[in-house]
């Protein structure tokens, strides 16, 4: 049971960081539906660099760097060119999915490095994830930088008039967001499951995207949701730990996805919106073009 809880928290960490990165970008008004693609890049490049150099540190740095680069690309398309953000995000997802399948293929197999040591029984990244949540909450709600990020996400024209550089603020958010997505991917391939095979994420990025909608753009609710989904994911992989022989293991694998659909549906009902309020950033998905 302890083993199950530990693995669940490990999985939650990846959801937490991936979803938090998306939340950060969305708070500045930029939607990136290609979380999965950025994560695949971070995971694959991180894995390749770590295995080649034998250094975890370099692997993580490479994962973060490629994530930042992809974030920059998304920013260029979405902020500078002002193109449709959904199309851009789809492009990034398919680019990640297609290209990492090709470049990572020669690295198929286990990482073959000594595992990253635990801290009081848990992966060190769990603590980093929780710390990032607290930092994000603090920055977003208590600092002037956070106010700037939120205001460009709510009403960029008003923000611009009050002296905030919308373009620069959005770029900052989107690049940081990409770096965190790359980091989340690298945690998957270097710590959670250090074996490379093609398209191994199997939907983590899309669940992370859904988590942002569940969280109502609040980092603490996001953390709760991530822990729930990390547990569900782990349960779907090892159902025998909790409920022996109830369903086929394949059917268990559908459970996190089914629950995502169900929760997303609940979230979008009018009852829910009226009761909990929709905290969706007002300018989400809209390019800002200065006239």
């Amino acid at each position: 049971m302890w083993e199950f809880i530990v693995r669940s928290l490990d999985a939650s960490t990846i959801f937490t960081i991936a979803a938090l990165s998306e939340l950060l970008g969305q708070r500045s008004g930029v939607l990136n539906v290609g979380v999965e693609g950025v994560m695949l890049f971070g995971a694959t490049i991180g894995f390749m660099v770590a295995q080649t150099t034998g250094s975890y540190l370099l692997g993580f740095l490479a994962g973060i760097a490629i994530g930042g680069l992809i974030g920059l690309l998304h920013g260029f398309f979405s902020i500078t060119l002002g193109s449709d953000q959904v199309v851009n995000g789809m492009g990034i997802w398919i680019l990640g999915f297609g290209l990492t399948t090709y470049i990572g293929y020669p690295y198929t197999g286990p990482l073959g490095m000594e595992r990253i040591p635990n801290v009081i029984g848990l992966s060190p990244f769990f603590f980093i994830g929780v710390a990032l949540i607290i930092i994000a909450w603090f920055v977003l709600t208590k600092t002037s930088l956070g106010l700037r990020i939120r205001s460009v996400g709510e009403n960029p024209s008003v923000a611009e008039v009050s002296g905030i550089n919308v373009t620069r603020t959005r770029y900052l958010s989107v690049i940081t967001s990409g770096m965190l997505m790359g980091f989340a991917g690298a945690i998957y391939s270097l710590d959670y499951n250090p074996v490379w095979s093609n398209d191994f994420l199997m939907g983590w990025g899309f669940i992370a995207l859904a988590l942002v909608f569940f969280s109502m753009w609040n980092p603490y609710i996001l953390l709760g949701g991530s822990i729930l989904f990390g547990t569900l994911w782990q349960l779907s992989l090892n159902p025998q730990l909790v409920l022996p022989d109830l369903m086929s293991r394949y059917i268990w694998r559908t459970v996190p996805f089914t629950i995502t659909v169900g929760a997303l549906m609940l979230m979008s009902t009018e009852w829910f919106r009226a009761r909990w309020g929709a905290a969706k950033p007002e300018a989400l998905g809209q390019p800002y073009i200065k006239d």
Binding site: V87, M90, I94, L95, G98, L99, T101, Y105, N198
Partner: peptide, 16 residues
């Protein structure tokens, strides 16, 4: 392996 996947990615991002 996977050049059809790589092409998929390159085409998509060019299109974007």
């Amino acid at each position: 392996f996977g050049i059809d996947y790589a092409l998929l990615g390159v085409l998509m991002i060019t299109l974007v």
